[in-house]
Design a protein around this nucleic acid. Structure first.
Lengths: 233, 233
DNA sequence: AGAACCGCTTGATTTCAGTCAATTCGATTA
DNA sequence: TAATCGAATTGACTGAAATCAAGCGGTTCT
């Protein structure tokens, strides 16, 4: 099966030709929160361009452990890392609108559709860079540093508003599975960040930076000084 | 600077036209062990195709922590994840022969050189898949599982010979920086794997599988049973 | 030969994050 | 308003890997 619950709906007439004259012809589709676009191992019959909303991409190990390998929102292309079969599962974490592209178009795409191919090449390069950054985060940072890095990068994707406020569209457990932590650890650190006055959670899924520079220092591998001036030495 | 020690040598006449009629014109170059092809942040003036030998790709955090984001050998394309500037440093861990491709060719490559573009697209997709697998390894596995996964995948890249023997071209510290562990932990686990009769180190950089299935079970998230039969229950 | 160096191994101890368990919070429904 | 359910928080305890430190073995340099 490819779509859990079969709740993907065609949106005839919704935003078309986003990707130029050679763009795909399939119409945009709607996916509800918690529905899957595809599962790891499914035959890859199409790739998807996200038009709005958020999805998570993850892998499941045999012992049930899961690893989220990325979150994706508007502009992301899904399914390009695989060949024949999807190598990740993909679940909507908000309501999502996607535009499918038949996989058949991918073979020899450079000859047949150079505009789309360039688009895909840029996207996949960006995703590879992001995956490598995430490797550095997961492999070389402490829980505290991981969370700081995560908040900054998610805020970046969400475009922080004038109040330094941004969405946190995923659950604590998703954050944990992305960062290689447990949700209890994420929860504790979020609480600690608040207690120290670095962030303010206006709701579970809404966050505001109070001391962004402290998080940036943490993320870059420095010590958090909480405003205490460093003495020259 | 781009090449530490300036020890990259042109190899005029060495293997040419590996990548079809539209292949790059620059000649192959030799890089000695421990020399750098490029550093994180350098202007990306070219990408490279590895023709022989091994390199490591890594990032350095401000506090000096390093994360190896990948090892690459024959057939790999280096520098494609970046745009304008290299996002990783690249160091030869053995003597290496590479073929450079001027970055200028990359823009609009689909129109100008579709054969090379298809090649790059396949390579980058493979690298993204590998990076995501590595995320799952680093984020969701124990030290023991990480090492089992690593040995299996490196053996795969090296092509195990008839004696189930394969090269381990990197140092313990490199393995550690790749797996998000400390070199002491890698050393301990390697010793433990040997003591349990799963592997035999014929030298520091040469390994033989004795009980490959145990490692495979470990890597997939199961318990290691060391040959003791499981009772049906 | 001796000294110095480098990478690896091994041991003792500490610590950060994981585990297990209880409780709270918030949204939805009866 | 009470009941229910899922998600998040909080607490007590444990354990796996990090840290700190010493020693080993091979290679290179004087």
């Amino acid at each position: 099966m490819c779509i859990a619950g079969g709740r993907i709906h065609d949106l005839q007439g919704a935003g078309s030709k986003t990707f130029g004259a050679t763009a795909p012809t399939l119409s945009a589709q709607h996916v509800s929160t918690h529905d899957h676009l595809f599962f790891e191992g499914d035959a890859r019959d199409r790739i998807y361009i996200v038009e709005s909303g958020w999805v998570k991409l993850y892998r499941t190990l045999i012992d049930g452990q899961r690893q989220i390998v990325g979150f994706a929102n508007s502009g992301s292309i899904l399914g390009i890392e695989s060949d024949g079969h999807y190598s990740n599962s993909c679940e909507a974490i908000t309501d999502v609108i996607i535009r499918p592209i038949p996989a058949i178009r991918i073979n020899g795409i450079c000859k047949n559709d150079p505009a789309l191919a360039d688009q895909i090449l840029r996207q996949i390069a960006r995703q590879l860079g992001a995956a490598q950054s995430q490797l550095a985060t997961i492999g070389a940072q402490s829980a505290e540093q991981k969370l700081a890095t995560f908040l900054l990068s998610i805020a970046d994707l969400c475009e922080v508003n004038h109040d330094r406020e941004f969405d946190l569209p995923m659950r604590r457990g998703d954050m944990a599975e992305f960062l290689g932590l447990r949700l209890e650890t994420v929860s504790r650190k979020m609480t600690e960040f608040q207690r120290r006055g670095w962030i303010k959670l206006t709701s579970l899924y809404h966050c505001r930076f109070l001391q962004r520079h402290v998080l940036e220092q943490l993320a870059q591998g420095g010590e958090a000084d909480t405003g205490v001036a460093l003495r020259a030495c």
